[in-house]
Design a protein around this nucleic acid. Structure first.
Lengths: 207, 207
DNA sequence: CTGCATTAACTACTGC
DNA sequence: GCAGTAGTATTCGGTC
DNA sequence: GACCGAATCCAAGTAG
DNA sequence: CTACTTGGTAATGCAG
Protein backbone atom coordinates (compact mmCIF):
# COMPACT_ATOMS: atom_id res chain seq x y z
CA UNK A 1 0.00 0.00 0.00
CA UNK A 2 1.72 3.15 -1.11
CA UNK A 3 -1.01 5.59 -0.18
CA UNK A 4 -1.74 6.97 3.25
CA UNK A 5 -4.08 9.43 4.79
CA UNK A 6 -2.70 12.90 4.70
CA UNK A 7 -2.33 13.58 8.37
CA UNK A 8 -1.08 17.12 8.01
CA UNK A 9 -4.22 18.58 6.48
CA UNK A 10 -7.26 16.72 7.65
CA UNK A 11 -10.17 17.79 5.47
CA UNK A 12 -13.83 17.85 6.37
CA UNK A 13 -14.71 14.51 4.86
CA UNK A 14 -16.72 11.64 6.15
CA UNK A 15 -14.16 8.95 6.70
CA UNK A 16 -16.33 5.93 6.19
CA UNK A 17 -13.62 3.33 5.96
CA UNK A 18 -15.14 0.14 7.27
CA UNK A 19 -18.45 1.72 8.17
CA UNK A 20 -20.34 2.25 4.93
CA UNK A 21 -20.82 -0.02 1.94
CA UNK A 22 -17.78 -1.50 0.30
CA UNK A 23 -17.37 0.24 -3.01
CA UNK A 24 -14.38 -0.52 -5.19
CA UNK A 25 -13.02 1.61 -8.01
CA UNK A 26 -10.94 0.01 -10.74
CA UNK A 27 -8.72 1.72 -13.25
CA UNK A 28 -7.65 -1.19 -15.38
CA UNK A 29 -4.69 -1.09 -17.74
CA UNK A 30 -2.28 -3.70 -19.03
CA UNK A 31 0.78 -2.90 -16.96
CA UNK A 32 -0.31 -0.70 -14.07
CA UNK A 33 -3.84 -0.80 -12.66
CA UNK A 34 -5.31 1.27 -9.87
CA UNK A 35 -7.69 0.04 -7.20
CA UNK A 36 -9.39 2.00 -4.46
CA UNK A 37 -11.89 1.61 -1.67
CA UNK A 38 -13.22 4.07 0.91
CA UNK A 39 -10.19 5.63 2.52
CA UNK A 40 -7.49 3.80 0.61
CA UNK A 41 -5.95 3.44 -2.80
CA UNK A 42 -3.59 0.88 -4.18
CA UNK A 43 -2.20 -0.43 -7.42
CA UNK A 44 -0.75 -3.52 -8.98
CA UNK A 45 1.49 -4.32 -11.91
CA UNK A 46 1.96 -7.12 -14.36
CA UNK A 47 5.68 -6.79 -14.91
CA UNK A 48 7.10 -9.72 -16.79
CA UNK A 49 3.77 -11.03 -17.94
CA UNK A 50 2.11 -10.90 -21.33
CA UNK A 51 -0.77 -12.33 -23.27
CA UNK A 52 -3.08 -14.74 -21.52
CA UNK A 53 -0.90 -14.79 -18.41
CA UNK A 54 -1.12 -11.05 -18.08
CA UNK A 55 -4.89 -10.99 -18.53
CA UNK A 56 -5.40 -13.77 -16.07
CA UNK A 57 -3.26 -12.00 -13.53
CA UNK A 58 -5.19 -8.78 -13.91
CA UNK A 59 -8.53 -10.46 -13.40
CA UNK A 60 -7.34 -12.52 -10.46
CA UNK A 61 -5.72 -9.62 -8.70
CA UNK A 62 -8.66 -7.32 -9.23
CA UNK A 63 -11.02 -10.02 -8.04
CA UNK A 64 -9.09 -10.25 -4.82
CA UNK A 65 -10.05 -6.66 -4.15
CA UNK A 66 -13.70 -6.67 -5.18
CA UNK A 67 -14.48 -10.14 -3.86
CA UNK A 68 -16.70 -8.78 -1.09
CA UNK A 69 -17.72 -5.54 -2.70
CA UNK A 70 -21.24 -4.19 -2.73
CA UNK A 71 -20.59 -2.17 -5.84
CA UNK A 72 -17.71 -1.91 -8.29
CA UNK A 73 -16.93 0.94 -10.63
CA UNK A 74 -14.76 0.28 -13.59
CA UNK A 75 -13.41 2.73 -16.08
CA UNK A 76 -14.64 2.21 -19.60
CA UNK A 77 -12.62 2.29 -22.79
CA UNK A 78 -11.84 5.51 -24.54
CA UNK A 79 -12.68 5.60 -28.21
CA UNK A 80 -9.33 7.06 -29.07
CA UNK A 81 -7.71 3.92 -27.86
CA UNK A 82 -8.94 1.91 -30.82
CA UNK A 83 -6.30 0.94 -33.33
CA UNK A 84 -3.56 1.53 -30.82
CA UNK A 85 -1.05 -0.59 -29.04
CA UNK A 86 -2.62 -3.38 -27.08
CA UNK A 87 -6.13 -2.02 -27.34
CA UNK A 88 -7.74 -5.38 -27.93
CA UNK A 89 -5.95 -6.95 -25.02
CA UNK A 90 -7.18 -4.12 -22.85
CA UNK A 91 -10.74 -4.44 -24.03
CA UNK A 92 -10.42 -8.06 -23.09
CA UNK A 93 -9.15 -7.25 -19.60
CA UNK A 94 -12.12 -5.02 -18.91
CA UNK A 95 -14.70 -7.37 -20.36
CA UNK A 96 -13.24 -10.30 -18.47
CA UNK A 97 -13.64 -8.41 -15.25
CA UNK A 98 -17.18 -7.47 -16.17
CA UNK A 99 -17.97 -11.10 -16.86
CA UNK A 100 -16.43 -12.11 -13.58
CA UNK A 101 -18.46 -9.50 -11.73
CA UNK A 102 -21.61 -10.73 -13.40
CA UNK A 103 -20.79 -14.30 -12.41
CA UNK A 104 -20.32 -13.17 -8.82
CA UNK A 105 -23.52 -11.13 -8.93
CA UNK A 106 -21.65 -8.06 -7.86
CA UNK A 107 -23.36 -4.91 -9.18
CA UNK A 108 -21.06 -2.77 -11.24
CA UNK A 109 -21.07 0.39 -13.28
CA UNK A 110 -18.94 1.37 -16.24
CA UNK A 111 -17.72 4.95 -16.13
CA UNK A 112 -16.31 6.75 -19.14
CA UNK A 113 -13.06 8.67 -18.76
CA UNK A 114 -14.97 11.91 -19.36
CA UNK A 115 -17.38 11.30 -16.51
CA UNK A 116 -14.52 10.49 -14.21
CA UNK A 117 -12.70 13.68 -15.13
CA UNK A 118 -15.81 15.79 -14.74
CA UNK A 119 -16.59 14.36 -11.34
CA UNK A 120 -13.07 15.10 -10.21
CA UNK A 121 -12.43 18.46 -11.82
CA UNK A 122 -15.75 19.82 -13.04
CA UNK A 123 -14.81 19.71 -16.68
CA UNK A 124 -13.76 17.08 -19.20
CA UNK A 125 -11.62 19.07 -21.60
CA UNK A 126 -9.22 21.52 -20.14
CA UNK A 127 -7.31 24.29 -21.77
CA UNK A 128 -4.32 26.04 -20.35
CA UNK A 129 -5.51 29.29 -18.80
CA UNK A 130 -2.68 31.26 -20.33
CA UNK A 131 -1.84 29.69 -23.65
CA UNK A 132 -5.37 28.51 -24.34
CA UNK A 133 -4.01 25.28 -25.69
CA UNK A 134 -5.68 22.10 -24.62
CA UNK A 135 -3.95 20.30 -21.85
CA UNK A 136 -2.21 17.05 -22.59
CA UNK A 137 -3.83 13.90 -21.22
CA UNK A 138 -0.99 13.82 -18.76
CA UNK A 139 -1.78 17.29 -17.43
CA UNK A 140 -5.45 16.44 -17.10
CA UNK A 141 -4.53 13.36 -15.15
CA UNK A 142 -2.51 15.57 -12.88
CA UNK A 143 -5.48 17.82 -12.33
CA UNK A 144 -7.63 14.84 -11.45
CA UNK A 145 -5.07 13.59 -9.02
CA UNK A 146 -4.61 16.98 -7.37
CA UNK A 147 -8.30 17.62 -6.96
CA UNK A 148 -8.93 14.16 -5.60
CA UNK A 149 -6.05 14.41 -3.18
CA UNK A 150 -7.29 17.75 -1.92
CA UNK A 151 -10.94 16.85 -1.68
CA UNK A 152 -10.54 13.47 -0.03
CA UNK A 153 -7.33 14.07 1.85
CA UNK A 154 -5.53 11.16 0.30
CA UNK A 155 -1.93 11.26 -0.83
CA UNK A 156 -1.46 9.64 -4.21
CA UNK A 157 2.21 8.97 -4.60
CA UNK A 158 4.64 7.04 -6.68
CA UNK A 159 4.62 5.99 -10.30
CA UNK A 160 1.06 4.74 -10.12
CA UNK A 161 -0.33 7.90 -8.51
CA UNK A 162 -2.56 8.72 -11.44
CA UNK A 163 -4.02 5.27 -11.63
CA UNK A 164 -4.71 5.24 -7.93
CA UNK A 165 -6.33 8.65 -8.06
CA UNK A 166 -8.49 7.55 -10.97
CA UNK A 167 -9.62 4.52 -9.06
CA UNK A 168 -10.33 6.63 -6.02
CA UNK A 169 -12.49 9.04 -7.95
CA UNK A 170 -14.45 6.15 -9.41
CA UNK A 171 -14.99 4.73 -5.97
CA UNK A 172 -16.07 8.14 -4.65
CA UNK A 173 -18.63 8.36 -7.44
CA UNK A 174 -20.08 5.05 -6.40
CA UNK A 175 -20.24 6.07 -2.76
CA UNK A 176 -21.92 9.29 -3.74
CA UNK A 177 -24.49 7.49 -5.87
CA UNK A 178 -25.26 5.20 -2.95
CA UNK A 179 -25.84 8.18 -0.69
CA UNK A 180 -22.59 7.90 1.21
CA UNK A 181 -20.69 10.71 -0.41
CA UNK A 182 -17.16 11.07 0.89
CA UNK A 183 -17.13 14.83 0.46
CA UNK A 184 -19.24 17.69 -0.75
CA UNK A 185 -18.82 18.16 -4.46
CA UNK A 186 -20.09 21.10 -6.54
CA UNK A 187 -22.98 20.54 -8.94
CA UNK A 188 -20.56 21.11 -11.81
CA UNK A 189 -18.81 17.98 -10.69
CA UNK A 190 -21.66 15.80 -9.48
CA UNK A 191 -23.50 16.20 -12.77
CA UNK A 192 -21.18 13.48 -14.03
CA UNK A 193 -23.13 10.94 -11.99
CA UNK A 194 -26.03 11.00 -14.38
CA UNK A 195 -23.79 10.10 -17.29
CA UNK A 196 -22.97 6.76 -15.72
CA UNK A 197 -24.57 3.43 -16.60
CA UNK A 198 -25.54 2.42 -13.11
CA UNK A 199 -26.54 -1.16 -12.41
CA UNK A 200 -30.24 -1.88 -12.47
CA UNK A 201 -30.14 -4.74 -10.03
CA UNK A 202 -30.61 -3.90 -6.39
CA UNK A 203 -27.43 -3.03 -4.58
CA UNK A 204 -27.04 -4.72 -1.23
CA UNK A 205 -26.96 -1.38 0.54
CA UNK A 206 -30.10 0.72 0.64
CA UNK A 207 -29.81 4.01 -1.17
CA UNK B 1 -25.68 -30.26 -36.69
CA UNK B 2 -26.52 -28.73 -40.01
CA UNK B 3 -23.63 -30.16 -41.98
CA UNK B 4 -23.36 -33.65 -43.38
CA UNK B 5 -20.91 -35.61 -45.44
CA UNK B 6 -21.51 -35.18 -49.10
CA UNK B 7 -22.49 -38.69 -50.07
CA UNK B 8 -22.84 -37.98 -53.75
CA UNK B 9 -19.23 -37.11 -54.46
CA UNK B 10 -16.97 -38.95 -52.09
CA UNK B 11 -13.49 -37.48 -52.48
CA UNK B 12 -10.19 -39.16 -51.84
CA UNK B 13 -9.72 -37.88 -48.32
CA UNK B 14 -8.63 -39.58 -45.17
CA UNK B 15 -11.73 -39.61 -43.05
CA UNK B 16 -10.14 -39.61 -39.65
CA UNK B 17 -13.20 -38.86 -37.59
CA UNK B 18 -12.62 -40.53 -34.28
CA UNK B 19 -9.29 -42.06 -35.22
CA UNK B 20 -6.71 -39.28 -35.23
CA UNK B 21 -6.10 -36.46 -32.78
CA UNK B 22 -9.01 -34.24 -31.85
CA UNK B 23 -8.37 -30.89 -33.45
CA UNK B 24 -10.98 -28.15 -33.18
CA UNK B 25 -11.27 -25.08 -35.38
CA UNK B 26 -13.04 -22.00 -34.07
CA UNK B 27 -14.32 -19.04 -36.04
CA UNK B 28 -15.53 -16.79 -33.27
CA UNK B 29 -17.88 -13.87 -33.80
CA UNK B 30 -20.47 -12.15 -31.65
CA UNK B 31 -23.65 -13.59 -33.12
CA UNK B 32 -22.72 -16.58 -35.26
CA UNK B 33 -19.64 -18.66 -34.57
CA UNK B 34 -18.35 -21.66 -36.49
CA UNK B 35 -16.84 -24.79 -34.95
CA UNK B 36 -15.36 -27.79 -36.69
CA UNK B 37 -13.62 -31.04 -35.97
CA UNK B 38 -12.34 -33.82 -38.25
CA UNK B 39 -15.27 -34.76 -40.47
CA UNK B 40 -17.83 -32.35 -39.12
CA UNK B 41 -18.68 -28.68 -38.90
CA UNK B 42 -21.20 -26.89 -36.78
CA UNK B 43 -22.16 -23.45 -35.58
CA UNK B 44 -23.86 -21.70 -32.73
CA UNK B 45 -25.60 -18.39 -32.21
CA UNK B 46 -26.13 -15.97 -29.37
CA UNK B 47 -29.53 -14.65 -30.38
CA UNK B 48 -31.15 -12.60 -27.67
CA UNK B 49 -27.97 -12.17 -25.68
CA UNK B 50 -25.68 -9.19 -25.28
CA UNK B 51 -22.83 -7.90 -23.20
CA UNK B 52 -21.46 -10.14 -20.49
CA UNK B 53 -24.16 -12.74 -21.06
CA UNK B 54 -23.24 -13.03 -24.69
CA UNK B 55 -19.53 -13.35 -24.01
CA UNK B 56 -20.10 -15.92 -21.33
CA UNK B 57 -22.29 -17.93 -23.65
CA UNK B 58 -19.70 -17.87 -26.40
CA UNK B 59 -16.95 -19.09 -24.12
CA UNK B 60 -19.09 -21.76 -22.51
CA UNK B 61 -20.41 -23.09 -25.78
CA UNK B 62 -17.00 -23.12 -27.43
CA UNK B 63 -15.53 -24.84 -24.38
CA UNK B 64 -18.09 -27.59 -24.73
CA UNK B 65 -16.56 -28.37 -28.10
CA UNK B 66 -12.88 -28.12 -27.29
CA UNK B 67 -13.09 -29.63 -23.83
CA UNK B 68 -11.25 -32.78 -24.88
CA UNK B 69 -9.28 -31.35 -27.76
CA UNK B 70 -5.62 -32.04 -28.37
CA UNK B 71 -5.22 -28.82 -30.29
CA UNK B 72 -7.44 -25.82 -30.98
CA UNK B 73 -7.13 -23.32 -33.81
CA UNK B 74 -8.77 -19.98 -33.41
CA UNK B 75 -9.04 -17.23 -35.94
CA UNK B 76 -7.30 -14.04 -34.96
CA UNK B 77 -8.59 -10.51 -35.23
CA UNK B 78 -8.26 -8.48 -38.38
CA UNK B 79 -6.69 -5.10 -37.99
CA UNK B 80 -9.36 -3.49 -40.10
CA UNK B 81 -11.91 -4.41 -37.53
CA UNK B 82 -10.64 -1.84 -35.06
CA UNK B 83 -12.88 1.15 -34.51
CA UNK B 84 -15.90 -0.74 -35.71
CA UNK B 85 -19.07 -1.96 -34.15
CA UNK B 86 -18.50 -4.31 -31.29
CA UNK B 87 -14.82 -4.76 -32.00
CA UNK B 88 -13.84 -4.61 -28.37
CA UNK B 89 -16.43 -7.13 -27.37
CA UNK B 90 -15.11 -9.44 -30.05
CA UNK B 91 -11.54 -9.02 -28.96
CA UNK B 92 -12.75 -9.96 -25.53
CA UNK B 93 -14.48 -13.08 -26.77
CA UNK B 94 -11.32 -14.32 -28.43
CA UNK B 95 -9.05 -13.48 -25.53
CA UNK B 96 -11.41 -15.07 -23.05
CA UNK B 97 -11.28 -18.27 -25.02
CA UNK B 98 -7.52 -18.08 -25.20
CA UNK B 99 -7.36 -17.65 -21.44
CA UNK B 100 -9.68 -20.56 -20.95
CA UNK B 101 -7.57 -22.72 -23.21
CA UNK B 102 -4.48 -21.76 -21.30
CA UNK B 103 -6.17 -22.63 -18.02
CA UNK B 104 -7.11 -26.01 -19.43
CA UNK B 105 -3.62 -26.54 -20.78
CA UNK B 106 -4.98 -27.16 -24.22
CA UNK B 107 -2.46 -26.17 -26.89
CA UNK B 108 -3.82 -23.64 -29.32
CA UNK B 109 -2.75 -21.59 -32.28
CA UNK B 110 -4.01 -18.24 -33.49
CA UNK B 111 -4.45 -18.06 -37.24
CA UNK B 112 -4.82 -14.80 -39.11
CA UNK B 113 -7.60 -14.47 -41.68
CA UNK B 114 -4.95 -14.27 -44.40
CA UNK B 115 -3.36 -17.57 -43.49
CA UNK B 116 -6.72 -19.23 -43.41
CA UNK B 117 -7.62 -17.91 -46.85
CA UNK B 118 -4.27 -18.91 -48.30
CA UNK B 119 -4.51 -22.43 -46.94
CA UNK B 120 -7.96 -22.77 -48.44
CA UNK B 121 -7.51 -21.03 -51.76
CA UNK B 122 -3.79 -20.55 -52.34
CA UNK B 123 -3.95 -16.77 -52.21
CA UNK B 124 -5.01 -14.13 -49.72
CA UNK B 125 -6.13 -11.33 -52.01
CA UNK B 126 -8.17 -12.23 -55.00
CA UNK B 127 -9.00 -10.23 -58.06
CA UNK B 128 -11.77 -10.99 -60.46
CA UNK B 129 -10.22 -12.80 -63.44
CA UNK B 130 -12.15 -10.71 -65.93
CA UNK B 131 -12.61 -7.28 -64.43
CA UNK B 132 -9.37 -7.35 -62.48
CA UNK B 133 -11.12 -5.74 -59.54
CA UNK B 134 -10.51 -7.16 -56.14
CA UNK B 135 -13.14 -9.50 -54.91
CA UNK B 136 -15.38 -8.43 -52.09
CA UNK B 137 -14.81 -10.08 -48.73
CA UNK B 138 -18.03 -11.90 -49.37
CA UNK B 139 -16.78 -13.37 -52.61
CA UNK B 140 -13.56 -14.46 -51.00
CA UNK B 141 -15.49 -16.17 -48.27
CA UNK B 142 -17.43 -17.96 -50.97
CA UNK B 143 -14.19 -19.13 -52.55
CA UNK B 144 -12.96 -20.45 -49.23
CA UNK B 145 -16.17 -22.30 -48.67
CA UNK B 146 -16.23 -23.79 -52.17
CA UNK B 147 -12.64 -24.96 -52.06
CA UNK B 148 -13.05 -26.44 -48.61
CA UNK B 149 -16.25 -28.20 -49.57
CA UNK B 150 -14.63 -29.67 -52.66
CA UNK B 151 -11.37 -30.68 -51.05
CA UNK B 152 -12.79 -32.24 -47.92
CA UNK B 153 -16.13 -33.40 -49.25
CA UNK B 154 -18.13 -31.53 -46.68
CA UNK B 155 -21.33 -29.67 -47.43
CA UNK B 156 -21.43 -26.28 -45.76
CA UNK B 157 -25.01 -25.16 -45.82
CA UNK B 158 -27.35 -22.61 -44.32
CA UNK B 159 -26.78 -19.12 -43.07
CA UNK B 160 -23.67 -20.05 -41.16
CA UNK B 161 -22.00 -21.87 -44.04
CA UNK B 162 -19.10 -19.46 -44.25
CA UNK B 163 -18.41 -19.61 -40.56
CA UNK B 164 -18.47 -23.37 -40.61
CA UNK B 165 -16.21 -23.54 -43.61
CA UNK B 166 -13.78 -21.16 -41.94
CA UNK B 167 -13.70 -23.31 -38.84
CA UNK B 168 -13.20 -26.41 -40.95
CA UNK B 169 -10.25 -24.92 -42.75
CA UNK B 170 -8.67 -23.94 -39.46
CA UNK B 171 -9.14 -27.45 -38.14
CA UNK B 172 -7.67 -28.90 -41.33
CA UNK B 173 -4.62 -26.72 -40.90
CA UNK B 174 -4.13 -28.08 -37.42
CA UNK B 175 -4.48 -31.66 -38.58
CA UNK B 176 -2.02 -31.02 -41.35
CA UNK B 177 0.50 -29.51 -38.96
CA UNK B 178 0.18 -32.54 -36.73
CA UNK B 179 0.89 -34.83 -39.65
CA UNK B 180 -2.66 -36.02 -40.13
CA UNK B 181 -3.57 -34.00 -43.18
CA UNK B 182 -7.14 -34.52 -44.28
CA UNK B 183 -6.32 -34.08 -47.95
CA UNK B 184 -3.45 -33.32 -50.26
CA UNK B 185 -2.99 -29.58 -50.59
CA UNK B 186 -0.74 -27.76 -53.07
CA UNK B 187 2.39 -26.05 -51.82
CA UNK B 188 0.79 -22.71 -52.70
CA UNK B 189 -1.77 -23.49 -50.04
CA UNK B 190 0.25 -25.29 -47.40
CA UNK B 191 2.79 -22.48 -47.27
CA UNK B 192 0.26 -20.77 -45.01
CA UNK B 193 1.17 -23.18 -42.25
CA UNK B 194 4.46 -21.46 -41.58
CA UNK B 195 2.69 -18.16 -41.01
CA UNK B 196 0.91 -19.55 -38.00
CA UNK B 197 1.93 -19.06 -34.38
CA UNK B 198 1.94 -22.69 -33.38
CA UNK B 199 2.02 -23.64 -29.72
CA UNK B 200 5.44 -24.35 -28.29
CA UNK B 201 4.28 -26.76 -25.63
CA UNK B 202 4.14 -30.40 -26.60
CA UNK B 203 0.92 -31.49 -28.16
CA UNK B 204 -0.49 -34.71 -26.74
CA UNK B 205 -0.25 -36.38 -30.11
CA UNK B 206 3.17 -37.11 -31.51
CA UNK B 207 3.96 -35.27 -34.69
C1' DC C 1 -36.50 -16.25 -43.41
C1' DT C 2 -32.55 -15.77 -46.46
C1' DG C 3 -29.30 -12.91 -49.10
C1' DC C 4 -26.94 -8.86 -50.30
C1' DA C 5 -25.29 -3.79 -49.63
C1' DT C 6 -24.22 -0.31 -46.58
C1' DT C 7 -21.79 1.82 -42.94
C1' DA C 8 -19.42 1.89 -38.74
C1' DA C 9 -19.29 6.05 -30.96
C1' DC C 10 -20.22 9.12 -27.64
C1' DT C 11 -20.48 13.42 -25.46
C1' DA C 12 -18.75 17.82 -23.79
C1' DC C 13 -18.16 22.17 -25.33
C1' DT C 14 -18.89 26.21 -28.43
C1' DG C 15 -21.25 29.36 -31.07
C1' DC C 16 -25.52 30.74 -32.80
C1' DG D 1 -32.05 26.37 -25.82
C1' DC D 2 -30.31 23.81 -29.89
C1' DA D 3 -27.29 22.08 -33.56
C1' DG D 4 -22.64 21.38 -35.18
C1' DT D 5 -17.91 20.03 -34.16
C1' DA D 6 -14.06 18.12 -32.29
C1' DG D 7 -11.75 15.29 -28.76
C1' DT D 8 -10.67 11.02 -27.02
C1' DA D 9 -5.09 6.71 -24.05
C1' DT D 10 -1.30 3.61 -23.31
C1' DT D 11 2.72 1.16 -24.31
C1' DC D 12 7.31 0.76 -25.12
C1' DG D 13 12.10 2.35 -25.42
C1' DG D 14 15.46 5.47 -24.56
C1' DT D 15 17.25 8.80 -21.16
C1' DC D 16 18.53 10.77 -16.96
C1' DG E 1 14.43 2.81 -10.89
C1' DA E 2 11.58 6.89 -12.39
C1' DC E 3 10.52 10.18 -15.94
C1' DC E 4 9.70 11.85 -20.43
C1' DG E 5 8.64 11.49 -25.36
C1' DA E 6 7.20 9.19 -29.70
C1' DA E 7 4.62 5.80 -32.17
C1' DT E 8 0.91 3.16 -32.28
C1' DC E 9 -0.29 -4.02 -37.00
C1' DC E 10 1.23 -7.49 -39.98
C1' DA E 11 2.13 -9.82 -43.96
C1' DA E 12 0.91 -10.75 -48.99
C1' DG E 13 1.62 -9.01 -53.30
C1' DT E 14 4.06 -6.42 -56.41
C1' DA E 15 7.65 -3.85 -58.48
C1' DG E 16 12.40 -3.14 -59.02
C1' DC F 1 16.17 -11.40 -53.31
C1' DT F 2 14.84 -6.88 -51.33
C1' DA F 3 12.07 -2.87 -50.47
C1' DC F 4 7.84 -0.77 -50.70
C1' DT F 5 2.64 -0.59 -50.90
C1' DT F 6 -1.67 -1.91 -49.69
C1' DG F 7 -5.28 -4.41 -47.75
C1' DG F 8 -7.70 -6.11 -44.17
C1' DT F 9 -14.43 -7.34 -40.94
C1' DA F 10 -18.95 -7.80 -39.36
C1' DA F 11 -23.60 -6.20 -37.54
C1' DT F 12 -27.62 -4.13 -39.14
C1' DG F 13 -31.34 -2.97 -42.20
C1' DC F 14 -33.82 -3.46 -46.33
C1' DA F 15 -35.18 -6.16 -50.37
C1' DG F 16 -36.56 -10.44 -52.40
Amino acid sequence: MTTLFDTTTVPAVNVTAGTGPLVIGLDIALVTSGVAGPGWANHFRTTGLAGEDRLQHIVDTAAGYYRNADLVLIEGAAYSMAKQVGHDEMSAARWMIRCDLRRRRIPFAVVTPDSRTIYATGRARWKDEETGKKLTPRQVKGKVRDEAARRYGIVFDGTARFDQADAYVLMAMGMDWLGYSLAEVPKTHSRALKGVAWPTQTVAVAR
